[in-house]
Design a protein around this nucleic acid. Sequence first.
DNA 1: GGTATGCGGAGAGAATTTCTCCGCTTGGTG
DNA 2: CACCAAGCGGAGAAATTCTCTCCGCATACC
Lengths: 211, 211
Amino acid sequence: MRADAERSRRRILDAACEVFLERGPDAPLDAVVRRAGVGPATLYRRFPDREALVRALVTDLLARLAAAAAEARGAEPDPYRALRRFVHAAADLRMGAAIVVLLERLVVDAELVAVRERAVTEVEGLLGAAREAGRVRADVGMGDLVLLCVRVSRPLPGALAALDADGELVHRHLDLALAGLAGADRPMGVPLGFDEVIAAAGRPGEPGVGE
Amino acid sequence: MRADAERSRRRILDAACEVFLERGPDAPLDAVVRRAGVGPATLYRRFPDREALVRALVTDLLARLAAAAAEARGAEPDPYRALRRFVHAAADLRMGAAIVVLLERLVVDAELVAVRERAVTEVEGLLGAAREAGRVRADVGMGDLVLLCVRVSRPLPGALAALDADGELVHRHLDLALAGLAGADRPMGVPLGFDEVIAAAGRPGEPGVGE
DNA sequence: GGTATGCGGAGAGAATTTCTCCGCTTGGTG
DNA sequence: CACCAAGCGGAGAAATTCTCTCCGCATACC
């Protein structure tokens, strides 16, 4: 495959990830095209229809997710720190997008099941270890962990997304959710005021926000 | 105002709240109409344009939010319990929707500022009291609280929304985020497995999901 | 029981979205 | 360097979706 074709493919997948996360799995492919900065023909040549794009995106993300879990397990001896490391990595990978599109209008074939099982097994390992070490309560399951990650690490809606342009805020709130409002797991730095949130309101048309 | 007119108005506002939350502030009003189960004329008669609808929705929600905060303060002597009570009430009120639409394409007039200030003051009171009582860490601000609520209590994307059809799951995860994964603030009941999450995938076209 | 207010469906016109054809550009190769 | 196949983006046709109005019928209040 030619180098520029590979580049286009990557840009389309990244754009699709953002767009599906923000606008749901029925978002117009047109929006993906605009976000990716390529011509429509480029998308339709590579991915004949919506399903092909979604399938490629999900497969790609799940594989990277499993890799991130394995990496976290290897890099952190402490089980809880390993889990936390993975959760942050999952946020960067937009785990939410994988789930969103995974669940909708996608015939789950053998390949998809395989890559999904691998990711699930890896993450279950992380969670189980942290639980056995007594760092995670017993009444929290895989579903809770995954959904909490999806909830916290989805991009903020609309203009609020500008608050997290650098992706720092999501990590802050991930730590907050992991530790709880009272926890002092690690210092959070300066609090986020409400004024900043309101200020994000006054700037519609920020690049990449309302499209 | 006639009784059926008031009823229609309420149904439209509730539907708009859900739809804007799920599909962003540019969601077609057509979708609101369908969700509300009324005719298009009914919506356009009551709300001449999108802005009128958004304005009415925001005003309504902010007022109810302020009332919920005051209620929580009165009902719970313990400051942390009061804060938690409010957060759960805010989730039921779909606080996220207020924020989403508040921030987008809406000229903030005096009335809106007033109702917003009242809500903010109330919530600041709750947060400040909990912080002074040592139940909330000092490096968490109003913005953090609000955004964490928005993040956790937004409806789950796509088909996952079916998991939370009864609205129980959001309260579970709210408590989880408040207490942290390790906290034993209060028992969480049976853990949510990953299989349930996957199972939610197999049922596209669930009423009210893809629409 | 009368009447004014309100309701929903049908549908016109506008806007958006999907997807293809085609001429130009670019990357890899000898 | 020069060739050429692979790839790219824009213009645009066809289908779909969205906005908003007119009108005959139903329903709430007096």
